[in-house]
């Protein structure tokens, strides 16, 4: 299958300069970006060996001697392209704060406890239907220094590879109904409401495991459309 990657689709992305998020003004390009037609270099993208994901990498609650504290959840969904076709064998990497809103990263100094039973990193590969699944705990909200009393809504960081190097996506998955949405300049950097809502998972009662874990569904759409037969 031959794919193409319309740059118009990028209008769903946040602008690189988003002054409400105070780290953007000194870190975004200021000169015009160079427009170009995609060459073989952009149309290709990495594949990864079978050993990139080991059994158990998708269960963040089983990486240590004991179980992490917090609300156990299932996070699952499908990785699709812009035609709605599943992206099979896509690598999905996640990282997140623990249930208290604290990251294991050395730079995180939020005075909330670390959990010796939680690292907060996981990876998974999509199956032939584009489906992935993680078991983790619900991350807590956490404060940050962007503005007075700034708090990030609870989120899980996602990193994905699709059909090409230009379909590479790093995003954040949010939880439905978070009262912090309206105050968060990162969430709101996506100016289109429909696009913004695509970053919010949905509560998934059907896939909740009774007496064990709630489930949230998060489908991800990556850049890439199939060439029409006429063009190929």
């Amino acid at each position: 299958m031959t794919f193409f990657f319309p740059t118009q689709s990028l209008s769903a992305f946040p602008p690189r300069l988003s002054p409400g998020y105070k780290s953007t003004p000194k870190r975004c390009p200021t000169k015009p970006l160079i427009l170009m037609k995609h060459t073989l270099s952009e149309l290709t993208g990495p594949v990864y060996g079978q050993d990139a994901v080991q059994p158990g990498d998708e269960d963040l609650t089983r990486q240590h001697a004991g179980e992490p504290l917090g609300e156990r959840i299932i996070v699952h969904g499908r990785v699709l392209d812009e035609d709605g076709r599943p992206v099979p064998n896509a690598l999905v990497e996640i990282w997140q704060a623990n249930a208290c809103g604290r990251y294991i990263h050395v730079v995180d100094q939020h005075p909330a406890p670390l959990d010796p039973n939680f690292t907060g990193a996981g990876r998974s590969k999509t199956d032939e239907n584009g489906h992935y699944k993680f078991i983790t705990v619900k991350p807590g909200a956490y404060p940050w220094g962007n503005h007075p009393n700034a708090w990030r809504p609870a989120h899980i960081h996602f990193s994905m590879f699709g059909h090409s190097f230009v379909s590479r996506l790093v995003t954040q998955m949010y939880f439905p109904g978070d009262p912090l949405f309206q105050y968060d300049p990162i969430f709101n950097s996506v100016t289109d409401e429909n696009a913004r809502n695509r970053m919010v998972s949905s509560f998934d009662l059907e896939n909740t495991v009774p007496e064990w874990a709630l489930a949230y569904r998060f489908d991800i759409v990556l850049r890439g459309r199939n060439q029409t037969p006429m063009e190929s």
Binding site: H105, S159, T171, Q172
Partner: peptide, 29 residues
């Protein structure tokens, strides 16, 4: 056509997940 999922920043704390490089209890992809 399905609208693509918007990008968000990788943030300051990705290293233990994406580039642990021996500093965290997680292996590099």
């Amino acid at each position: 056509t399905f609208g693509i999922t918007p990008s968000q920043t990788v943030g300051p704390y990705f290293a233990y997940g994406l580039t642990p490089n021996g500093k965290y209890d997680w292996k590099d992809t």
